Amino acid sequence: DDVELRDGDWRVELKDADEEILRAVEEAIKNGASEQELRELAERLIR
């Protein structure tokens, strides 16, 4: 699993992620995405 989400800690570690993925995830976090939404976003972007 390349995506690590810690309970109560919104730092997201994406291994080997490019800047576009990181920006998309950071934007989702700023917009108040839930953990499930972040997982789905990350899975779509990593593929």
Rank of each mutant, 00 (worst) to 15 (best):
Q36S: 11
E40H: 07
V3D: 13
G32A: 02
K30V: 09
A24N: 04
G8L: 13
L41H: 00
D1Q: 14
E35Y: 07
L22T: 06
R47S: 15
Q36N: 12
E43G: 10
I29D: 05
V25R: 01
L22V: 13
D9L: 00
E40C: 05
E27I: 11
L41G: 00
V12F: 02
A42H: 08
L14N: 01
R44F: 02
D16S: 07
E37I: 04
E26I: 10
V3L: 10
D2E: 15
E37P: 00
D1Y: 11
L45A: 08
G32S: 02
K30N: 10
A28R: 02
V12E: 15
A42S: 07
R39D: 02
D2S: 13
E4C: 03
L41T: 00
R47I: 11
R47W: 00
E13R: 11
E26Q: 07
W10T: 04
L22Q: 09
I21D: 02
L45P: 04
A28N: 01
R23F: 08
D1G: 11
G32N: 05
L5I: 15
R39W: 05
K15F: 09
E26N: 07
S34I: 02
D9V: 00
R39F: 03
V3W: 13
R11E: 08
L45K: 04
E4N: 12
A33S: 05
D1N: 13
L38M: 04
E43W: 00
E35V: 09
A24I: 15
A17L: 11
L38P: 00
D2A: 11
S34T: 12
E26V: 10
R47M: 08
I21M: 07
V25Q: 01
R47Y: 00
D1C: 05
L41P: 00
E26M: 09
K15V: 13
E19W: 08
N31K: 12
D7W: 01
L5A: 14
I21P: 01
L45M: 08
N31T: 08
E37N: 02
E26Y: 03
R23Y: 05
D9T: 00
L38G: 04
L14I: 10
K30L: 11
E13D: 12
E40L: 08
V25K: 00
R39T: 03
L41N: 00
R23W: 07
D2H: 12
R47K: 15
D16M: 05
E35D: 12
D9G: 04
L45H: 07
E35P: 08
A24M: 14
V12T: 11
L38H: 00
L38W: 15
L5S: 14
R47Q: 15
S34Q: 04
I29W: 15
D2P: 11
G8D: 13
A42R: 04
A24E: 09
E37R: 02
S34K: 05
V25H: 01
K30T: 06
L45D: 03
L41K: 00
E40M: 06
S34M: 03
R23G: 04
E19R: 06
E27M: 03
G8N: 14
L41M: 08
E19F: 05
D9M: 00
D7P: 04
I29V: 10
L14F: 08
L41W: 01
D7N: 12
N31Y: 01
E20Q: 12
L41Q: 00
R11I: 14
L45V: 07
L22H: 09
A33Q: 04
L22R: 13
D2K: 11
R44K: 09
I21N: 01
E43V: 04
I46T: 09
I21T: 11
W10S: 06
I29M: 15
V12A: 13
W10A: 05
R23D: 03
E4F: 03
R23M: 10
K15A: 09
W10D: 04
I46L: 11
N31W: 02
A33G: 04
L22E: 02
S34W: 01
K15T: 10
I21K: 01
R6E: 14
G32L: 02
V3P: 06
L38C: 03
L5R: 11
E43P: 04
E37V: 04
L41E: 00
E40D: 10
L14R: 00
E19C: 10
K15S: 10
R47D: 11
A33P: 01
R39P: 00
E26L: 10
V3Y: 14
R11G: 10
E26W: 03
W10P: 05
A28Q: 02
V25S: 00
A28H: 03
A24P: 01
S34H: 03
L41I: 06
E19V: 10
I46D: 05
R11S: 09
R11N: 08
E19N: 10
R39S: 05
A28V: 01
R6P: 09
L38R: 02
E37H: 05
R39E: 04
E19T: 06
A28P: 00
G8I: 12
D18S: 09
L5W: 13
E27C: 06
E20P: 07
K15H: 09
R39I: 09
I29G: 08
L5K: 14
E40V: 07
Q36G: 07
Q36L: 10
R39Y: 02
R39M: 07
E43H: 08
K15L: 15
G32Q: 02
L45Q: 05
R47C: 07
I46R: 06
E26K: 08
L5T: 15
L5P: 14
A17P: 03
V25Y: 07
K30F: 07
G8K: 08
L22A: 05
R44H: 13
A24Y: 08
D9A: 01
W10I: 09
I46S: 06
L45C: 04
E19I: 10
L41F: 02
A24L: 14
E27S: 10
E4D: 11
A42D: 03
E20A: 13
A33C: 03
D2M: 11
D1S: 13
D2Y: 11
A17R: 05
D18H: 11
G8M: 13
L41Y: 01
D9E: 02
D7Y: 02
G32W: 00
N31A: 10
E40R: 08
L45G: 06
D1V: 12
L14P: 01
D16Q: 08
E4L: 12
A42L: 15
R11D: 06
E27F: 01
I21L: 09
L22K: 12
R11V: 11
A28M: 07
L14E: 02
E26G: 10
R44A: 10
E40P: 00
E20G: 13
I21H: 03
A33V: 10
K30Q: 09
I21S: 05
N31E: 08
G32I: 01
E40F: 03
L14S: 02
I46E: 04
E27P: 00
E43A: 06
I46F: 02
E27H: 07
A33Y: 14
A42F: 15
V25M: 13
V12G: 12
L38Q: 04
V25F: 14
I46H: 05
I46Q: 11
A33D: 02
E35F: 05
R11Q: 11
E4I: 14
E20I: 09
G8S: 07
E13C: 14
E40Q: 10
R47E: 13
V3K: 14
S34Y: 02
D1K: 15
N31H: 11
E43Q: 09
I21F: 06
D16N: 13
S34L: 04
D9K: 01
N31L: 12
E43L: 04
L45F: 00
R11Y: 14
I21Q: 03
L41A: 01
E26D: 09
A17K: 06
A42Y: 15
W10Y: 05
R44Q: 12
R11H: 06
D18W: 07
A17H: 07
S34F: 02
E37Q: 10
D7I: 06
K15P: 05
D2V: 14
A17Q: 08
L14W: 04
E43T: 07
I46P: 04
N31D: 06
K30A: 12
R39V: 07
K30R: 12
R11T: 07
E19M: 06
E4P: 13
A28D: 00
K15M: 15
W10R: 04
I46Y: 01
E19D: 12
A33K: 07
E27K: 08
R6N: 14
R11C: 07
R47L: 08
A24W: 08
E13Y: 03
L5Q: 14
G32K: 03
V3Q: 13
I46N: 05
D16I: 06
V25W: 07
E35H: 09
A28I: 02
V25T: 01
N31Q: 12
A33N: 03
Q36T: 11
V3H: 13
N31R: 13
L45E: 04
Q36W: 02
E43I: 05
A42C: 10
D18L: 09
L38D: 00
E4G: 15
D7A: 02
E4R: 09
K30Y: 06
I29H: 09
K15N: 10
I29Y: 15
L14M: 09
E13F: 02
A17F: 13
A17I: 09
E43S: 07
R23L: 10
V25I: 15
V12K: 14
S34V: 03
K15E: 12
L45R: 03
R39A: 09
D18Q: 08
E40K: 10
I29T: 09
D16K: 08
I29L: 14
E37D: 07
L45N: 04
E27Q: 11
D7E: 08
D1W: 06
D7C: 04
A28K: 02
Q36Y: 02
I46M: 14
E20S: 12
D2N: 15
K15G: 07
I29E: 15
D9P: 00
Q36P: 05
E35M: 10
E37S: 03
K15D: 08
A33W: 13
L5G: 14
L45Y: 01
S34C: 03
D16F: 11
R39G: 02
E40Y: 02
E19S: 06
E40T: 10
D9H: 01
G8P: 15
Q36K: 13
D2W: 09
R6M: 14
I29N: 05
G32T: 01
